[in-house]
Amino acid sequence: MEIDSQNPGGTGTGPIGNNPETGIAASGNGAQSVAEYQEKLKQTQVSRWESTSKSLRKDWQLYTFLILPILYLIIFQYLPMIGNVIAFRRFVPGGSMLGQDFVGLRYFEMFWNDRTFWRVFRNTFTIGGLTLLFNFPIPIIFALLLNEVKSVKFKRFVQTASYLPYFISMVIIAGMIMEMLSANGIINQMIAYFGGDTIIFLQRAEWFRTIYVASGVWQTTGWGAILYLAALTNIDPNLYEAAAIDGAGRLKQTWHVTIPGILPTIMTLLILNIGNFMNVGFEKVFLLYNPLTYETGDVISTYLYRIGLGSANFSYATAIGLAQAVVGFVLVMSANMLSRKLTNRSLW
């Protein structure tokens, strides 16, 4: 970059191919300054390579740190990414991971015309939206309320207790949900106590989203509040005093001091959440749904898992997965760009 700006005329000519001509041209009388200039140019063009190779030679040990992690990323992240080409090429089981012959957008047309695809698309959208609607603001409210607790010990106890569920395996979470919601589980015991009828929740499509979102709130609220609590402790106490002197009550102090204090954190996490909007957790849906709740519970990732590994339609499933990944990527990028424009804050 630096080289180009110094010498716009030198674009495209490599340092090696340039050398002999330069030498001859420079031998003329009175062209000494030109020769010097060319020599200088040669040096700057070479210097970048030289500094890199010098740095490699001198500091080779540092660069060896890169080898294994980068190799890992190439094999386990980038190779599957390349494997996405089977969305455009027919994959034959046992054949090349890159597929057999090019079929263009056939698999994309296929899901565009697939009714089930639109059902799982709608479900993904709804579940993602509901998760954002509840799982995003509830930790903020929880952090604000916890911040008002005066006893440090009680505060720490509540906090520690609240993020325990975050560290529990999804299998256990699903198991507990099933036990609690079963016909003889504690929820139905409570319903019976108040004289209601037993509901087999996990077999009723209309309950799936509620179960998904509520258990998500139960599992992630405490953990989600950590960053807000950290931001809250960083607010200057003088601001509260100043507000109090100006006659602001507790509510006004919260509104004018606390909320602005944690707003940057809120923005950052909002970007992340919007970016992950379409990545509805595969594991929980997969563990909790069944054919009776496909209508509301089946999402893109579970659907493509079934048609891919269940029915061996590898290319078709890959096309759906690729489309989802691209949409997800665009969402993160747009959310980040929007945030940079609106609030001058972004993830990168």
Binding site: L73, I75, Q77, G83, N84, G321
Partner: peptide
């Protein structure tokens, strides 16, 4: 570290764009 920006980008990109279940299985 020469080319730091590239290596960071190379790593971070995998956070936002993954290969997907099926290609991963095939690999």
């Amino acid at each position: 570290l020469k080319g730091k920006g590239f290596w960071v980008g190379f790593s971070v990109f995998t956070m936002f764009f993954a290969g997907g279940i099926i290609p991963t299985y095939i690999v």
